[in-house]
Nucleic acid binder design. Structure first.
Length: 478
RNA sequence: GGCCCCAUCGUCUAGCGGCCUAGGACAUCGCCCUCUCACGGCGAAGACACGGGUUCGAUUCCCGUUGGGGCUACCA
C-alpha cells in the first residue's frame, strides 16, 4: 500500500550560471517540505534559453545540491528534451482560440514600448495580431490570449492572499519564433505534467503567478498551491550577486565550510522555530513548515554563517573532519593521510577552527618539517633567559620519552619539574616552547601540542630552538 | 510611470491584542576563566519607520505616508 504523501515539489533552476546561495535556499525549502510531508522532490532543469544555458552550469547545480544533501526522487528533467509537450499544448490553445500567431518584430515591439513609456502609458502589447489564427509564412511567435477582466487571487503559502487585476495581464509570448516555449508557459506545462502540488520559488515570481494561472485555466489544468519565498540580499539591500563576494555554493566548499552549516544558516534566513539557531538536516525536516517562513527579505550575513560553521565544526565527527581536511592540507603541500595521528591533530584543532581552511592554516605547524619562527614571536620569547629552562625541559622530556610515556600528563610533570624549583610561572615557559614547536604564539594547549607532536618532533624542534637562541646570542656578542 | 510584495536592535529573528520596562542569536564592548588563541560563563550597549484610526488596551488589526524590493522581454 502506498502511504506516502501525494505532495510533489520541485526545484527548477535555469543553468545559466553557478548555483548560488539564493537558489540553494529555494531548493532547500522545497526539499524540506517534501521530506517533511513524505512527498516527492523533483529536479528540473529549465534550459530553454539555449544561448545562456551551459553544461558546466548544470554540473555545478547537481554538484552543489548533492554536496548539501538535497537528493531528488525524480529527474533531472530537461526542458530541452520536452519540446513536443510544449508544442502540443500550444496547438491546443491555438485550436481553442486561446492563442494566436504574432508576426510583430522585436524592433517594432521595442519601439512601441519605448513610446508608451515616454507617454506615461502602460507598455502592453497593443494586440496588433490578436485573432490571427492561420499560420503565417513569415517568422512568427505565438501569443496567449490573456483575460482582460476580473481578478486573479493567489492564495500564497507564505504571503497569504494576493489579488491582481486581470486587466494588467498582457498577451504574453508562449512560443518564441525559434520554436521554443517561454518560461511562463513551459513552467505551467511542466508543473502540470509532473503533477506538482506545491510550487515554491523566489518571490520575484509572484507577479508571474497570475499569468501562469491564466494559462492553467486556459489549458483546463488543476492549479497547484503557490509559495513565494522572499529573496536573499547583499549588505546593500540589493539582490545578492557576485559583487557581494562568494555567492556560489561550491565556493563555500572550497572556503572550508561544512554543508550542514550552510544548510543550517540558509534555513534560518527566512524560517525560524522559536529561538533555536542550530538545526541538523533531520531536525529541519521534522520541524519545517510554511507557517514558520517569514515574508520579508533577508540580508546575507557571512559572519553569522562563519559562526554556524564553527558550531558544526565542533560537533562534527573527527574522522570525517580529517577526511575533509586532507585536500586542504594537500593544497598547502602537505602529504597526509587519514591515520590515527591525523585524527589526533584534528581533535586538537576542531574546537578552535571556524572553517576547514582555518584548521589547515592553524594546524600546518604539525606537518612542517622545519619551523620558521615569526620574527616578533622569536624576538619576544626565544631569549637567552629561557635557554636554561628550555634545556632542562628538553632533558626532562627525553627522560619522559625514554620512560615510554609521552602523554599530556607526563609532559605536564616534566614542565613542573622545571618550573617548581625556579618559581617560574607556566606561561614563562609555555610561550617559548610554543614558539619553538609552532613558530607562533598561538596554538592549542601546549601539553596537548607536545603529546600530539610526539617525542621525536618535539625534541628535535626544542633542540633547534636552543641552537637558534645560542646562535643569535653569539651573533649579538660578535 | 503602472501593478505587486515587504517593514521589530547594524544583521538574522521571537512576538500571532494585555505575559513586552519587546526575548534569543551573530557582530561590537567590558569582566571572568586561562600556558597563547579559541571555547565557555557573566554583563553592557542596541529595535517595534512615521501618521491616522479600531479597541478599555496596540509591536501585534485597518488605512495612509515614507523607505526598500520585485514584475512590467520572443531571460528565467
Amino acid at each position: 500500500m502506498d502511504t506516502a504523501s501525494p505532495a510533489r515539489l520541485r526545484f527548477a533552476p535555469s543553468p545559466t550560471g553557478y548555483l548560488h546561495i539564493g537558489g540553494l535556499r529555494t531548493a532547500l525549502f522545497n526539499w524540506l517540505y517534501a521530506r517533511h510531508v513524505g512527498g516527492t522532490f523533483i529536479l528540473r532543469i529549465e534550459d530553454t534559453d539555449r544561448e545562456r544555458s551551459t553544461p558546466e552550469a548544470i554540473d555545478a547545480i547537481l554538484d552543489g545540491m548533492r554536496w548539501c544533501g538535497l537528493d531528488w526522487d525524480e529527474g533531472p528533467y530537461y526542458q530541452t528534451e520536452r519540446r513536443d509537450l510544449y508544442v502540443a499544448a500550444v496547438e491546443r490553445l491555438l485550436a481553442a482560440g486561446r492563442a494566436y500567431y504574432c508576426t510583430c518584430t522585436p524592433e517594432t515591439l521595442e519601439a512601441y514600448r519605448k513610446q508608451a513609456l515616454a507617454e506615461g502609458r502602460r507598455p502592453m502589447y497593443p494586440g496588433t495580431c490578436r485573432g490571427r489564427t492561420s499560420r503565417p509564412a513569415a517568422p512568427h511567435a505565438v501569443r496567449f490570449v490573456a483575460p482582460q477582466t476580473g481578478v486573479t487571487t493567489v492564495d500564497d503559502l507564505v504571503k497569504g492572499p494576493v489579488t491582481f487585476e486581470n486587466a494588467e495581464l498582457d498577451d504574453l509570448v508562449i512560443l518564441r519564433s525559434d520554436g521554443w516555449p517561454t518560461y511562463n508557459f513551459a513552467v505551467v506545462v511542466d508543473d502540470a505534467d509532473m503533477r506538482i502540488t506545491h510550487v515554491v520559488r523566489g518571490d520575484d515570481h509572484l507577479a508571474n503567478t497570475p499569468r501562469q494561472i491564466a494559462i492553467y485555466e486556459a489549458l483546463g489544468l488543476p492549479l497547484p498551491r503557490f509559495g513565494h519565498v522572499s529573496m536573499i540580499m547583499g549588505p546593500d539591500r540589493q539582490k545578492l550577486s557576485k559583487r557581494h563576494g562568494a555567492t556560489a555554493v561550491t565556493e563555500y566548499r572550497e572556503m572550508g565550510y561544512l554543508p550542514e552549516a550552510l544548510d543550517n544558516y540558509l534555513v534560518r534566513l527566512g524560517w525560524s522555530h522559536g529561538d533555536q539557531e542550530i538545526f541538523s538536516l533531520e531536525e529541519m525536516v521534522r520541524l519545517f513548515d510554511f507557517s514558520g517562513v517569514g515574508k520579508s527579505a533577508a540580508v546575507f550575513n557571512p559572519e553569522k554563517l562563519l559562526w554556524v560553521n564553527h558550531q558544526w565544526m565542533k560537533r562534527a565527527d573527527t574522522a570525517r573532519l580529517a577526511r575533509l581536511l586532507v585536500p586542504h592540507l594537500e593544497r598547502r603541500g602537505y602529504r597526509v593521510e587519514v591515520d590515527p595521528w591525523l585524527l589526533r591533530v584534528v581533535e586538537s584543532l576542531k574546537e578552535r577552527s571556524k572553517t576547514l581552511v582555518e584548521m589547515a592554516d592553524f594546524g600546518a605547524f604539525y606537518f612542517k618539517t622545519r619551523i620558521e619562527y615569526e620574527p616578533r614571536a622569536a624576538e619576544k620569547h626565544l631569549t637567552p633567559e629561557v635557554l636554561e629552562p628550555l634545556g632542562e625541559l628538553t632533558a626532562g622530556l627525553e627522560w619522559t620519552a625514554a620512560a615510554g610515556r609521552f602523554d599530556a600528563q607526563a609532559v605536564e610533570e616534566a614542565f613542573q619539574a622545571v618550573l617548581g624549583p625556579r618559581g617560574m610561572k607556566l606561561g614563562a615557559l609555555a610561550q617559548p616552547v610554543r614558539v619553538a614547536l609552532t613558530g607562533t604564539t598561538i596554538s592549542p594547549g601546549i601539553f596537548e601540542v607536545i603529546e600530539t607532536l610526539g617525542p621525536e618532533r618535539t625534541l628535535a624542534r626544542l633542540r633547534e630552538a636552543i641552537a637558534f637562541i645560542e646562535e643569535r646570542r653569539g651573533a649579538g656578542r660578535a
